[in-house]
Amino acid sequence: MSIIETRDLSFVYGIDTPFEKRAVNNVNIKIEQGEFIGIMGHTGSGKSTFVQMLNGLIKPTSGQVLLNGKDIWENPKEIRKVRFQVGMVFQYPEYQLFEETVYKDISFGPKNMGLTDSEIDKRVRDAARFVDLSGELLFKSPFDLSGGEKRRAAIAGVLAMDPDVLILDEPTAGLDPMGRDILLSQICQYHKQRKNTVLLVSHSMEDIARVSDKIMVMNKSNLEMFDKTKNVFSQNKHLEEIGLRVPQITKIMASLNEKGYDFSEGILTVEQAFAEILTKLNKEGKLW
């Protein structure tokens, strides 16, 4: 059974008014337990609305979201429980920090879940460890942290709910390359240890290429592609048609193949490209 399945999922803004706008159109998708999914699509493609329907922040106007095979809106009063199972980190999450200390802020979610104090304490410390916030930082005011630390504290606030599915909407937006690298590897680490499902929305093709197993591409409210990362990035032309790019390295290797070389399709990282070129040079004896 898929952990998340959507059936003809649609959302229309301002239904029955002259301002009617279809944001998500009949999306059918199955996400398996433990997968790392990258979600791409330009602004206004419907990806934000889509992910907010997965944890019941937006109620679909038609269609269903199944979590472990059960419709999340079966009992609307229980929708808060769904939000604990499907954790959502919004863009610029540091702007939602509000408590006196980082510790208290991270415990906001677990507290809302009604956990015991000792369980809350354990979860806060676990979550803080994942994002590398050390002991003394936990008792500072969140507003005294640096930009990157604030971001990590806010993400810990969602991790502390220990969700089965974690959705991150552009978690690295606005960070510098170092901050971006650190955060991405922390997310990967978390995914590896917890073996839970992660959905990462990002505009950075390089980031998505690095971490995801599968990619879902949204275009004009529709699900355009949903396939293994390699297969999606092999479709260079198709992606460019809908205004998306592929990582620079993928593009370079694809244009070499167009000129008659036979490298693998959908090369995603510099390491991969380097290895293939080196093998080829060695085989042909061009590398002394």
Partner: peptide
Amino acid sequence: RLDVPQATELAYKLKCSG
């Protein structure tokens, strides 16, 4: 820990291996 374009990084790696 600054970025370089992937094109440059690949060339650099190749250069390092001779």
